[in-house]
Design a protein around this nucleic acid. Structure first.
Ligand SMILES: [Zn+2]
Ligand SMILES: [Zn+2]
Ligand SMILES: [Zn+2]
Ligand SMILES: [Zn+2]
Lengths: 549, 549
DNA sequence: CGAGGTCAAGGATAGA
DNA sequence: TCTATCCTTGACCTCG
């Protein structure tokens, strides 16, 4: 009788009662009959992560975003996702469907592109570019990467309600006056690298030494890559043919193609009768690439996955024990650990040890890095300035990609280039907390790819030959190299995965995108840190490696 | 033998590792911690099928629902069901118990609790508790917080399908032999505080000094709070009356109440004819509280919000500039900043400065803290051990709550107790990254409450008088004080917000819950850090403040 | 109105 | 087989 809360008459039992089974939850009475969930077909509750979807699918995608580590289908990846399968949908395929319908964090994304669609777009772009490179007079010889303003983006999502616009943009696309721009510059955010004139001594000297244009090698290159000549204006007709083949819809069935001596890339290198020789050509490209790849000798190179894992686990145990000595800080996050480390004056020693390690390793590493590029077709024909720029711009991504087997994404332990086992946090001491997390995540993704060495080598080559990461004197040649490597990679994937190769390539492209993201992050943060007196004093080599002056 | 492991599909290996040690499963950070399973007494994981129960009993009932075939007892149907019989309970009797407690398919409830529901539950809890405290003989005089097993839960939502059961449980409730338990211990996670015997010198001495029972003050207290006497066994009848009034239904209209001189809390202090004097009583309570509140003199106390904001903004600018000198680290997170700070050897100075500051402030602060408690009705009548325990246990939450105006949750800058402006990250140097985030978040919430000083004072008092945060000699008296303060607060809210006061109270309760969470976090992390040599050496006062030995 | 959090239902699975 | 735990799901809620 005396409850004052009765002013709000609802809060008593009756409220609890009405709170039983309700019908479908709709945040608001939905005036219009909205389309059903695009993913599962159930009643949608709104637009979530960019896609009209139901509460369930929304939650599913949200959980994915939190828990990372994409789900894997165990049944071939072709499970049906609809309301009939509610409650027990295959998570892997459901996630794939979410992706393919364009779900993404914040729904902001540049369009509703699938990984696969994105990859296709990238590849198509590259194709068109090569075409243009070949057909165009070289009057626009300026740097690709300086021009990426105003480019009409191929990623602008075609609005469903304006299909006329779509064709508009499609037609304007091929005759765009800005058409010489790279596609990658719109896919990857523009890099914030500095001018190419400043070259670190250790890196620069290696490059210069190795860059005296050896006429013999150059000749070999010409032989091997006669279809992609160093003279841009010649022999374009063949490539043009490829393109015209490819411009038509891609609906031609694979089996048809097989009659034409296939397993060879069709998207990038559609077969024509003149392309019969490509197989062997590609083979020698791979061989050369692998020679360069052999030059890279990270400690883990010749270890099996199990051996590496044993190393890492062992190291992790020892590390944990060590950490326990400092006040049992084991479960504490890195920054706390580092703080303790610093304050107890143990840090300086610890850090110095690592710096010494880094210093030693850098010398070896950089030489091997340069030698790897000798295996990249025509790379040595590039202007030496470009070679240096590329090496510099790709350094971080290259080594992250190179070392993916050496890092346990679960424990964060890594085997260094010369075989020291340590937590990556010590490498990331100066980075914001989530930098090492990103590194781990990318590594997880790369591991997920289950790469063969040849694929790995090709990826490393591709990684080195993005034209949008730095200003270049001759971006077209670089572009061409990358296109070639992409073709090689694609063929390998096709041989290995057949129909699923598209998805795999998509995953690989995604890794590149993620790597690029890390690189950006890295540049932003480390630019500032390089001014640190301590580093300047104790690790000038690192600065030379990391920065441009 | 090893093949068995390999049967598990490919890349699962790290995941399976963790299987050995399993703790009680609690569905991730339960904000509303519930009393133990009503069926078997083990730790409950939530409300299942309408009854507060554990995972096991939930699963048991689910299996029954599927199998349909009801279990049959073979031993007469009177088997004991509790945790001691775990694993080998009689299924028939277990199911019977499930039924008798109201488990049913219809009892289910979906979705989360509204803020208001939660608050209502909390308040209801408190009410019932006070009831129990007063009616019970003191034979069970042991610590509240040790006993929170087996309490019958007022959180059990009455199952719709078994309304008869409801009255059953209601009647069993009031005569429960375990009824002396605190509610808060089930709402808030149990605190991990240490024994009350160890008291830090600085805190302890203040308390002891102030705790010599001043006969004059004690007399005043008796006059002012004669209805809540320090002697527990006397004058309980009045409170009992409140309670008995309160047990009946709450359907009397508010307007009726107003004829009885209301605006006084009815939920906690239901009006009876004897309660006419309460208004003035409450008034004097508030006045006394405010006297204590005046003793608290944080630098910002007499500044307007705008003035504080100006201070903070100014400090933030200066801080940013300073930070820019160290390699323009402005946007970097705290850990990086601290690292730089340490490595350049500027850190030690910086840290030491702050330590000095903390040391200075602690002395002032603790004295004022103790003096504040003099304004809490009957607080000084508590056993001095209890006073010290409460002061100790509440210290963090108290100061976070006290200083909410001094902290800009957007920039993370704060004005210290004596007026120094600095980023809170420097206070949180040893905490994991998200600790300061939590602090900011709680502060945001408190600011959102738009508290009046009196409300603030009441909250501080309530904050100090939770019985579940530490062991107490006389928890019931503490409980009574808190109930009184809650009533006062509730009335103030009602005057100010009328119909919306329920929601506001809900928000306030939520803040308490959040503060408690921070406290838990704090205790977990800082326990370890107190072993740090550097701190022991340079800031023993801090340790005394933070810890118990 | 959508992102994100909450939390009970139910499935999966190791253990008894 | 039954039990108890772990984990994913999806309806519902809050907040900005
Ligand atoms: Zn759906
Ligand atoms: Zn599937
Ligand atoms: Zn149970
Ligand atoms: Zn039985």
């Amino acid at each position: 009788m005396e409850l004052k809360l009765e002013l709000e008459p609802t809060n008593q039992k009756p409220k609890k009662q009405q709170r039983r089974k309700r019908e479908k939850y709709m945040p608001h009475a939905v005036p219009l009959v909205l389309p059903p969930c695009r993913i599962c077909g159930k009643l949608a509750s709104g637009i979530h992560y960019g896609v009209n979807s139901c509460e369930a699918c929304k939650g599913f995608f949200r959980r994915y975003l939190k828990r990372k580590e994409p789900f894997q289908c165990t049944k071939g990846g072709n499970c049906v996702i609809d309301q009939s399968s509610a409650g027990s949908m295959c998570s892997g395929c459901r996630l794939q469907k979410c992706f393919s319908l364009g779900m993404s964090k914040e729904g902001i994304r540049q369009g509703r592109y699938t990984l696969q669609e994105r990859t296709n777009a990238i590849i198509e772009m590259k194709k068109r570019q090569t075409e243009r490179c070949s057909t165009e007079s070289r009057e626009d010889n300026c740097n690709h990467y300086l021009e990426n303003e105003m480019q009409s983006s191929p990623f602008d999502y075609p609005s469903l309600s304006s299909s006329d616009m779509q064709s508009d943009s499609a037609s304007s696309f091929s005759c765009s006056q800005n058409s010489s721009l790279t596609s990658t510059s719109s896919i990857f955010p523009p890099s914030s690298t500095s001018s190419p004139s400043s070259i670190s001594s250790s890196l620069g000297s290696s490059v210069i030494k190795s860059n005296k244009p050896d006429p013999q090698i150059l000749k070999n290159m010409k032989t091997e890559y006669s279809k992609i000549p160093s003279e841009l204006d010649s022999s374009t007709n063949e490539i043009q043919q490829h393109i015209s083949c490819n411009d038509s819809s891609s609906s031609t069935s694979t089996s048809e193609k097989h009659s034409q001596n296939s397993t060879v890339s069709q998207l990038l290198f559609p077969l024509t009768t003149e392309n019969i020789a490509q197989d062997s050509e590609e083979h020698s490209t791979i061989e050369k690439l692998m020679e360069g790849y052999k030059e890279l000798k990270p400690f883990t190179k010749n270890l099996s996955d199990e051996e590496i894992q044993a190393l890492l686990s062992d190291g992790f145990q020892k590390y944990s024990q060590k950490v326990n000595l400092f006040g049992s800080m084991d479960p504490l996050p890195a920054n706390v650990y580092n703080e303790i480390f610093n304050i107890t004056n143990m840090d300086i020693d610890g850090r110095m040890k690592i710096f010494d390690l880094i210093r030693q390793e850098l010398v070896t590493v950089i030489h091997e890095y340069v030698r790897f590029t000798h295996g990249i077709p025509a790379f040595q024909n590039l202007p030496s300035k470009d070679q240096a720029s590329l090496l510099k711009a790709a350094r971080l991504e290259f080594f992250l990609l190179l070392g993916y087997r050496s890092l346990d994404p679960e424990t964060g332990m890594m085997v260094s280039y010369t075989g020291h086992v340590l937590p990556i946090r010590q490498f990331c001491a100066y980075a914001p907390g989530d930098m090492s997390t990103s590194w781990l995540e990318v590594t997880r993704h790369i591991r997920h790819l289950q790469l063969h060495p040849k694929e790995h080598a090709a990826m490393l080559g591709i990684c080195l030959t993005f034209t949008d990461r730095c200003p270049l004197e001759d971006p077209k040649s670089v572009e061409k190299i990358q296109t070639c490597l992409l073709g090689v990679l694609q063929n390998m994937l096709r041989v290995r995965y057949q129909g699923a190769s598209g998805r795999h390539l998509a995953r690989i492209m995604d890794v590149f995108i993620k790597l690029r993201g890390l690189n950006e992050e890295f540049l932003m943060v480390y630019k500032k840190i390089c001014q640190d007196r301590f580093i300047i004093q104790h690790l000038p080599e690192l600065l030379q490696f990391l920065f441009d002056e």
